[in-house]
């Protein structure tokens, strides 16, 4: 059986908000290492990979591997009933038809109990190769969100150019064009507000802004975001949170 108690409902609520528009149904794979999810979006352009490590729960118990097939919109509706500060406990039997969710208020004067029907999902799992990326850019998550939102007003696409001079986000559309260039900065007081650029070679790739804007729904999960790029491979956008990560992979736009 699975029993996983999470001290802050907000983590799960924000995680769901960050993926439910990309992915409709997904298996939550539970093992003794924690709870993970891998799913492509409907158009097979992006891939979401979530890990909530066992040590992020207290307690965490999973006797055997379980795949909990969940409609994310339904889970999101159930989680709406949890307050951000509630303690959430997830429970499932070994061959479960239902997922049980308990929300306890901090001072334990309110306990809400929900049961959600599970579904059988035959999901394709992709093998993601270990990649040493040519460019690794870490920046404030809110900055990345703002750049994506601003440039999406200009064009459907953005070209990200990482070089020794900085990282440049550029878009060109019917109304004109625009770009934002970030230089490396160092803010020792608040590392999450720094921008760092590690580069082994220059990289230029073009991506759909629709997807990037969607990825930035994860902004409330982390102060910083890391973009990892190599020429001719998907972009990795990673939000690290306490006890896990949310990663998005996005296939580049290529010359036909």
């Amino acid at each position: 059986m699975l029993e996983a108690r999470l001290a802050q409902a907000a983590v799960l609520k924000k995680t769901l908000d960050a993926i439910k528009e990309l992915v409709t149904d997904a298996n939550f794979d539970c093992s003794d290492g924690g709870i993970s999810l891998q799913a492509m979006d409907n158009s097979h352009v992006a891939l979401v990979s979530l890990l909530l490590r066992a040590d992020g729960f207290e307690p965490y118990r999973c006797d055997r591997n379980l795949a909990l097939g969940i409609n994310l919109n339904s889970l999101s509706k159930v989680l709406r009933s949890a307050q951000n500060e509630d303690i959430i406990t997830l429970k499932a039997a070994d061959d479960p038809d239902n997922l049980s969710l308990t929300f306890e208020s901090q001072n334990q004067d309110r306990i809400s109990e929900y049961e959600m029907k599970l579904m059988d999902i035959d999901q394709e799992h992709l093998g993601i190769p270990e990649t040493a990326y040519a460019a690794v850019i870490t920046m404030p998550a809110a900055e990345f969100q703002r750049i994506c939102r601003d440039l999406s007003g200009i064009s459907e696409s953005v070209t990200i150019d990482a070089s020794k001079d900085g990282v440049k986000f550029a878009s060109a559309g019917d109304i004109g064009n625009g770009s934002v260039t970030l230089k490396q900065t160092h803010n020792p007081e608040e590392p999450a507000l720094s921008t760092s650029i590690e580069l082994s070679e220059s990289v230029t790739l073009t991506f759909s802004l629709k997807y990037l804007v969607n990825f930035t729904k994860a902004t409330p999960l982390a102060g910083a975001v890391t973009l990892q790029m190599s020429n001719d491979v998907p972009l990795l956008v990673e939000y690290k949170m306490e006890g896990g990560y949310l990663r998005y992979y996005l296939a580049p736009k290529i010359q036909d």
Partner: peptide, 14 residues
Amino acid sequence: AIKQSEIKAYFGRK
């Protein structure tokens, strides 16, 4: 022309 590639073109089936 520029076109959108699919993620499966890069990551193999497990």
